[in-house]
Amino acid sequence: MKIKEMLENIKKEFPYIGTEIQEEKQARIYVCNDKFLNILTYLRNEKFEHLANIFAIDWIDEKEFEINYNLWSYEYLVSIIVKVRIPRDKAKIPTALNIWDHAQIYEREVHEFFGIEFIGNPDLSPLFLHNWKDLPPMRKDFDTEAFSRKAFDVGEREGEK
């Protein structure tokens, strides 16, 4: 099955999504917040069984987070990225735990680095960072340089002024 047909099929099923073909074997699907679980379930049943990872992008100017679900099909050897946008303020999104068990650890990571809450995920405790008290570090409004200066006592650097 060609990737184009595949996307058309999906579009037939879910008329409200946006699609985009990146390359021969890579495509993107844009979907709004409340419907994306249906798409993920559908894709999983359509042989996209492998959730490679979940990652987030901070669109600070548009005041939105973009959550990406990176899927891979062993059957068609095609990768699809499902992109969901949510408002940046008090970001919340339903968990994909019911579809893939291992989404748990990805969501935990995204939660730790972006502060996005995954509703329904039971364990969102810190994973990588040691005793982190500040803003989540991957958010664009987190000033890493200031943090570094303050936390690691860098002070002023030579020749900086």
């Binding site: 005793n131 500040d134 409004d141 987190f142 943090f147 690691f152």
Partner: peptide, 19 residues
């Protein structure tokens, strides 16, 4: 003291505070 400041901090370093 330095180690504790880094490893056992209780308040955020920057203003802006808790996530």
């Amino acid at each position: 003291k330095n180690q504790r400041k880094l490893l056992e901090r209780e308040t955020p370093f920057l203003d802006g505070g808790e996530k």
